[in-house]
Every structure is written in C-alpha cells, then in structure tokens.
Amino acid sequence: MKKMVLWAVFALVIGLGAYIRLAPSDPAQWNVAPVAPVDQDLPGGVVRVVETGPDGLHRLDQIIRATPRTSILAGSVDAGMITYITRTKWIGFPDYTTVQQDGNTLRINSRLRFGRKDFGVNKARVDGWLEQM
C-alpha cells in the first residue's frame, strides 16, 4: 500500500512538472499593454514606468534577450511592445514580462503565471534589467 501511494505521489509530481513546462501560453492573454501610471510592487509581480527616451525598448530588448531561459512570446521592437517568458531553472515556472514603448516612457509589467506570490523574483529581475540600462 505504501509503495502504491509513493508511486501515485511520484506520478502526480511528474505530471504537475510536465504541465508547468508544457502548458501553452496564449499571446492574446499575456501580450497586453501595461496600463499602470506609476511603479507598483505586487504580490505576484511588478510594474515599472521609466523615462528612457524613444529607444528604451530597443535597449532593454537587448538586455532581456541575453537573460538565461528567456524567450519572446509575442511582439517586437518595431511593434512597440514585446512579451517575454522567463522560466525558473529547475522547475520551469514561467513569468511573463510585457514591455511597451509609449513615447519616451517604457511601461513594464512582469508577473507570474502559477501561484499567488513570486517572493520578489520579478521585481529583482526587472530592476536588474533597468540597472543595466
């Protein structure tokens, strides 16, 4: 009986891990323009509004693309908005970061997909990118 329960738990963990890594990401749901007028630290993410000049998205895009385990979900520099997916190293939890150029202002919204709290991971990542600019 114990062996059967252990196998069931093992199968559940493997199934959950597979779902986290393989669940599709719908661009229509995640590639949405950030609308916050000011910086916000949220339980599941962060919003930043930064004056960068008209080339801010281009510069930040180069920094973000160099981030390990990060890919583009939708958008482009030419479109003026990009949504990136950055995954954790071990389990592959996805975080979504949308960056929009609005004149001389960059609006950034980075948020988790699974769970309620990201323990400051998105804030540290976004603030680190902005420091590199």
Rank of each mutant, 00 (worst) to 15 (best):
L112H: 02
Q100R: 15
D127G: 05
L16G: 05
W90L: 15
Q100I: 09
W30R: 07
H58G: 00
Y84D: 01
D118G: 04
T52V: 02
V121A: 15
R125M: 05
V50Y: 00
G45Q: 06
V38W: 07
D55P: 01
D118V: 07
A79R: 08
D78I: 06
A18S: 14
V32I: 15
S25P: 04
F10T: 15
A66F: 11
V50F: 06
G128E: 02
L6F: 14
I85M: 07
L130T: 02
L106W: 09
T86F: 01
M4N: 08
V9C: 10
A124T: 08
Q29L: 03
S110L: 02
A66V: 04
F114G: 08
V13L: 15
V32Q: 13
D61W: 09
T52A: 08
V46H: 06
S71Y: 07
A74N: 11
A66S: 15
G120V: 08
A79Q: 13
R113F: 03
L12S: 15
V47F: 10
W30Q: 02
R65Y: 01
P54V: 02
L130S: 04
A28S: 11
R116I: 05
D127Y: 01
D61V: 01
I82C: 00
G80C: 13
L16F: 09
I91M: 12
